[in-house]
Design a protein around this nucleic acid. Sequence first.
RNA 1: GGCCCCAUCGUCUAGUGGCCAAGGACACCACCCUCUCAAGGUGGAGACACGGGUUCGAAUCCCGUUGGGGCUGCCA
Length: 482
Amino acid sequence: MGAPRVRFAPSPTGYLHVGNARTALFNWLFARKHNGVFVLRIEDTDEERSRSSLVDGILSGLSWLGMDPDEGPYRQSERTDRYAEVVEQLWEDGYLYACDCSREDVLARTRNNPTPGYDGYCRERELERGPRTALRFRTPDTGSTVVHDIIRGDVEFPHAAMEDFVCVKSTGQPLFVLANVVDDRDTKITHVIRGEDLLPTTPKGLLIWSALDERDSVPLPAFAHLPMLVNEQRKKLSKRRDQVAVEYYRDRGFLAEAFRNYLALLGWSPPGDREKVDVETLIREFRLEDVHRAGAFFDVKKLTHLNGEYIRELSTAEFIDAVRPWVAPEPERGWAPATGTPPWPAERFDEQIFAEMAPLVQERISVLSEVPSMVDFLFLDEPVIDEQAWSERVARDPRAQQILRSAIEAYEHCDWDRTAIQAATRAVVEMAGTNLSKGQAPIRLAVTGRAVGPPLFEPLELLGRTEVLRRLRSALSRVEAV
RNA sequence: GGCCCCAUCGUCUAGUGGCCAAGGACACCACCCUCUCAAGGUGGAGACACGGGUUCGAAUCCCGUUGGGGCUGCCA
């Protein structure tokens, strides 16, 4: 095989859809593996989709995942002259005919037709082309078209069940099925790797392809139709019900490497009992013929777990760098999540303190957006109290007051480092007749505001004796008040 | 309705006629570790949709049934 040329051809929707991201990934992996070319083409023949702002999200999504195109983006909206030329040729060669039927006409006429769809009413009417006529492709009445699919084998479509489909709108605009074929030919695409939802339209494209071959023969690409990504109801991902924008996952704090790794696992798997594999392995091991045929559920839980593994594998420095958009965003200097800013004033963020906490936080999260709520108490004047936890662990616990009071006394005198604080705390809770496991709760609530979080004694040390004592006294007076 | 695709644990999958009394991962349960929570460790429960063939032998091949999905636009 010579250097293959593949293309990712989304319609512009404003964001990169996860299903499309998976399609792009499989195209990209195939191209990288075979030293081929990854072409990006924007399918915006429909004027409503041709606003260029709708392309930006796709570009940034691809870029985030490390799949910048080698060529393109080509925009179909910029190639109308070329399509017009092809339409002229097809018309002259007798493959197209004009049709002035409205949608209602067609529907009314085909209601009793055994094979729904257009019935070929205008086929022999020899209408002239005009501003009110669409152009239909004259499909053969007999025989069939076979799609040779790398993943599915040969799929046969009888022509008898194929209607004379519209190729050109009455406005003169070409439709997707035509533009798609013209572009694949003109850009010498060798492998068409796309979603299975396009399988039924493939024979139409093939018919156009061979009609065009009459004047200029171009080798047919190989086809590979990937299984759909589905939701928990086994339906294809919809933007109405499902979180389909890649951006959404980036905002939540998924790492590009983890996201890409997870996407690769949908419909394919690397050899051996392993799933967490680096991109080089993905490229080396990926084979189109090994792609699974059934639809795959996009499982955020599994993605989340994998992301946690990737996060834990980062060095502390890399981790700090990766979380920066969530703890110290600088929107004017780089990317920042669209989901909001940290709960503390930007000037209160302390790089040193955060660096101390980072390793403790890193091993407890699976998405980066979890970080702010784990360290907010360090950068806020007052901790945000989880009232439910407070009432359970402090207000309603008879030992809480004693623990808080003794902790204050102990902390006034003990050495101020994590080890000493822990030892002092252990003595306090044991004196109160409990253990560190249960007894630390009131202290944690008083200082961090929450019942759960990173280990307690490090942040106590970082916060400083004075501030810790202040928070403990404040908490104590609150319990004593009731 | 028509055409097409698909079918291994709840989920993603390994399996391409004997190595499968079906392996891994997520999720779930239990235990261990432990300052909370995670992480980690150990163990557990959990699947070849069904029915016919073919074969000495089938999760693997064929047919049918059932179930799911996609397409059926002058969207892509």
